[in-house]
């Protein structure tokens, strides 16, 4: 009896001694490292500080906050083991629809001349509704028609972009009310982004919604046998991802003061990249909002840093692509290690 106990204890002690660094901390260190790298390069190349410029930092975070809002929705989709390619296009569609309900009455070519000068809530709700509907369609296709998420959301990505263009025959929707554009003014997008991040951090960690999301990603069959209504939950997850893409559309159009069908091009990929860089596993069951926020910040710092150093946009894309691939390589490596540990 004693022998077994001692040896088991010994093994467990060894196991415990291996302190695991939370993924978020290591990603955060990467973020700090990249920032410091740009700081040093900044002094060498331009003789100027990269970090000691509040203006630049605010612009950087502003740029990232819209992608960040999408990325939060995409993160929970990826945790269920799915993917959402439609968020950039849904953003464009909602930006168009939202803007059309936010036009000023003195603008002669309004989309709905009878519906101008509406209070800001109307365009906001319209945007959220359109986004949620698009997500609902994604979810229903995946849960009931059993279409792989990649295909279902690819279809939505193409269709929603087409709808955004068809909505006004490709014309931009401009001259928006001041109370609507206030939503996107100053640091408001950042505040909205952080509020959504906190909300979903809590939702994923402390609610049934969150627990079920992880369970479905980890093992959908076991989730079903545990009494979870997997189909209903998946629809909800995709609808919420659509809702957040819609919110991003509202913020984007409010900030730009216009709705344009070309908005949010490739944002879905940046959002997926932010989630993956932040440690969300494409295999499902793993991922945290904090990681995604840091992942979005890493993308932001890269963009801002390269611009600051005067690196050409083409080269920026090359590096960005490499970083996304590197993040997935690391994810694969982590998974293999997990599997090995489980074996």
């Amino acid at each position: 009896m004693n022998n077994t106990m001692e040896t088991t204890d010994r093994l467990e002690v060894i196991k415990k001694r291996k302190k695991k660094i939370p993924t978020e901390i290591s990603i955060f260190l990467v973020l700090v490292g990249i920032a410091i790298l740009f700081e040093i390069l900044g002094w060498i190349v331009r003789g100027d500080s990269f970090l000691m410029n509040p203006q630049r930092l605010l612009i950087m975070i502003l740029q990232m906050s819209i992608i960040g809002i999408i990325a939060i929705g995409v993160t929970q989709v990826i945790i269920t083991g799915g993917i959402d390619l439609s968020s950039g296009s849904v953003l464009a569609l909602t930006a168009m629809v939202t803007a059309s309900f936010a036009q000023q009455s003195d603008y002669l070519r309004a989309v709905y001349p009878a519906l101008t000068d509406l209070p800001w809530v109307v365009p906001l709700l319209a945007g959220l509704l359109i986004g949620a509907l698009a997500g609902l369609v994604n979810g229903a296709l995946i849960a009931f028609a059993m279409i792989p998420p990649f295909i279902a959301t690819l279809g939505m990505m193409v269709s929603a972009r087409g709808m955004a263009r068809a909505y006004t025959d490709g014309q931009p929707v401009s001259m928006l009310t001041d109370q609507f554009t206030w939503i996107g003014s100053g640091a408001n997008p950042v505040i909205i982004f952080l509020a959504v991040a906190v909300l979903f951090h809590i939702a994923l960690k402390y609610t049934r919604y969150g627990k079920y999301t992880y369970a479905i990603g980890a093992n959908p069959q076991a989730a079903r046998v545990s009494g979870i209504n997997v189909r209903r939950h998946l629809i909800m997850v995709y609808a919420i991802a659509g809702l957040l893409a819609g919110l991003a559309g509202v913020v984007a159009s409010a900030r730009a003061g216009t709705g344009q069908a070309g908005m949010g091009l490739m944002y879905e990929l940046d959002a997926i990249a932010a989630a993956v860089i932040g440690g969300t596993s494409l295999a499902g069951g793993v991922g945290r909002i904090a990681g995604t926020v840091i992942g979005a910040l890493i993308l932001g710092v890269m963009l801002s840093g390269f611009t600051f150093l005067g690196v050409d946009a083409y080269y920026q894309d090359i590096v960005k692509g490499a970083i996304i691939v590197a993040a997935v390589v690391i994810d694969q490596y982590r998974q293999r290690r997990r599997l090995k540990a489980a074996a």
Binding site: R208, K211, Y212, Y214, A215, G217, A218, N219, Q221, A222, A223, V225, S226, G227, I228, S281, A283, G284, G285, V286, R338, A342
Partner: peptide, 21 residues
């Protein structure tokens, strides 16, 4: 493995999953 465990999740998450009601 097929229909029981949530392999990537913790012991507690595995244990509590059927009573989240």
């Amino acid at each position: 493995k097929e229909t029981g465990l949530f392999l990537g999740l913790s012991v507690e998450e595995n244990m509590e999953m059927a009573v989240l009601r």
